[in-house]
Every structure is written in C-alpha cells, then in structure tokens.
Simulated scan of single mutants.
Amino acid sequence: MSQLSTLPPSRVALPLLDSEVLRTFVTIAESGSFTRAAQQLCRTPSAVSMQIKRLEETLGQTLFVREARHVRLTTEGEVLLGYSRRLLKLNAEAVTQFLAPTIEGRVGLGLTDDVVGRILPTVLAQFARSHPAVQVDVEVGRSKDLLVRLDEGELDLALVMAGGPGQAGRGEIVHSEPLVWAGREDGVAVQRSPLPVTLAQQGCAWRRITLDALDQAGIAYRIAYSCDHCAGQEAAMLADLAVTAFPKSLVRSPLKRLHNESLPPLGDYQVALVKRPGVGSASEVLAERVAEAFREG
C-alpha cells in the first residue's frame, strides 16, 4: 500500500487545476466546438483534446457530450464552468495587481436604471480592487440624457437601451433578452379595459415597444402610472394598478410573467455599451470588464 493511501483524508493533497487548462475548457464551452476553440487558442485540436482528457481524468467526471458537429456540457461540466470562470477572473485580478502597469485616472460611467443591479455589486467592486488608483464616478439616468452627457465629454462610458426613439445605432450590443408582460401574481389589472400600463417617460425604448405593440394589436390602454425608475414601475405592479413590459430577468415574485393570450408579443430588449472617442486606458479596461460581465451572464 502506498504512503499516500494510508494518510487520513484531511491530509491527502488535492490536485491543483491549471489555469491554462481551465481557459481551454471555458473556450470550448463557449464556442461549442473543440476545433473552434483550438483556432481561438492557437493550438492544435489534438492538444486541446488531450488537455480536456487529462482534466476529466483528474476530476473523475465526463465534462462534455461529444456530438457530430457540436459539443455540449454535461451537468458536471456546467458546475465546473462556473468555478472556472471565477478562478480565471481571480487569477487575472491577482496578476493585474502585481504585474500590470498601474492605471490611474477618472472614468465617468453612465448607467440606466435597469442595469444598475447587474453592474454595481460585481463589476465595479472587482474593478475597484484590481485598479484602486482609478476613480469611477457613476451617474444613473435615461439613455438619451446619458448619450448627451457622453457627447459633451462629461461621461466616458454609457450603458444605454439600444434602439431608443430617434437614436441611431451606437456602441456595442452587450446584452439582449426578451421583453415580457409582467404584473402581480394574483392581480387583476391585466383583465381591465382599457388596459392600465405603467411606463417610463417619452424617449424610453421600452415605452415605444410597448405602445407600438398595443397599437398594432388594437388593444385599448391607458397610462396609469409614469416613472423612469424600475422600482417605481414595480411598485405600480405590486399595487395591481398596472401591467408593463419588463426584461424577463427582472421579473421576480410576487410579480410574474403574464401569459394572457390577448397581450401582443414584444420582441427583445438590448443594452449597448457606448464609449466616448479617445477615452483613456482606464476607461478601456473598465469597458472590457463590463462587456465580459454581460457575456458571462
């Protein structure tokens, strides 16, 4: 019997996961193909396959289901994907802290109300740890107002709703999800006629999408509550005063997605990241962190 096998479980050294292997694993999971991953990583397909084989042997789990032209994660692979992304991000933070050139300066970041919860607790906290010499000033407002401030040089980056009224396509689309009808779980507002809706003020992409859909479906409605903040619209729905169009991910109990057959489909809602021309390195790094956070969901 080997010396290792006689050690109590608490003293057996667990294997360490190699960050390069985890990077390969994540790239395959995101591209859905060993071949595409090999191209992105500038490696041969056989080298990529060998890395995954060794990783599976180390963990004693099958991580991918191999199909004809595609691979997909097993249940165990889905679990590892979350850990891998966090480990790689932590590794990048550690390396940046000690090896990357010090980045200093100020970044003016504009956010719409619907993305504040997605960005502030995670991305900005991590960015503050990895780049403590950068001051990030955050302003929350309406998309059209943020774009004006960006064009005037008062903001460096802005996360705005894409496709607002009179808004030309700008920036990089970093997030897309369905808009759905939402209301109180036990509410009756959806049964009223005319349909009471809660909306933001003029200039909001959700407002245009909602009203266009109702007009095209020939549904009578009245604007029962107007507020530019998601919290205000949620309050109107919680009070069962109105229903509205909401991004699917923001519908949380005691609100629910409404499946009333009389309500028209709404399409997708998109978030664009817009950069002011000529922004500095601090803004570029933060922009990449923001885009990465949306890609990872």
Rank of each mutant, 00 (worst) to 15 (best):
Q3M: 11
R11L: 15
R11W: 15
S19Q: 06
V26T: 15
E30V: 11
R36T: 13
A38N: 04
Q39N: 10
T44G: 03
V48A: 10
M50C: 00
Q51M: 08
K53S: 09
L59V: 09
G60I: 13
Q61E: 15
F64G: 01
R66K: 14
R69T: 14
H70S: 06
V71Q: 05
T74A: 07
G77Y: 04
L80S: 14
L81S: 08
E93D: 12
A94T: 12
V95P: 05
L99F: 11
P101A: 05
E104Q: 11
G110D: 09
L111M: 06
T112Y: 05
V116S: 02
R118E: 14
L120Q: 13
L124Y: 08
A128C: 04
D137Q: 10
V140F: 04
G141D: 12
R142N: 06
L150K: 01
L155P: 12
L157F: 14
M161A: 14
A162E: 09
A162M: 03
G166I: 15
Q167T: 14
A168C: 04
V174D: 08
E177I: 10
P178H: 00
V180D: 02
W181Y: 06
G187S: 05
P194E: 09
A200W: 03
A205F: 00
A205L: 01
R207E: 02
R208Q: 13
I209K: 13
T210K: 00
D212G: 03
A213Q: 08
I219C: 07
I223L: 10
G232Y: 12
Q233H: 15
Q233S: 10
A239G: 02
A242H: 07
V243E: 04
T244A: 12
F246T: 13
P247V: 09
K248Q: 11
L258K: 08
N260K: 00
P264A: 05
P265Y: 11
L266I: 15
L266A: 10
D268H: 15
D268T: 14
A272N: 04
A272G: 07
V274C: 04
K275I: 02
K275T: 09
G278S: 05
V279H: 01
E292I: 12
A293I: 06
F294R: 01
E296W: 13
G297F: 02
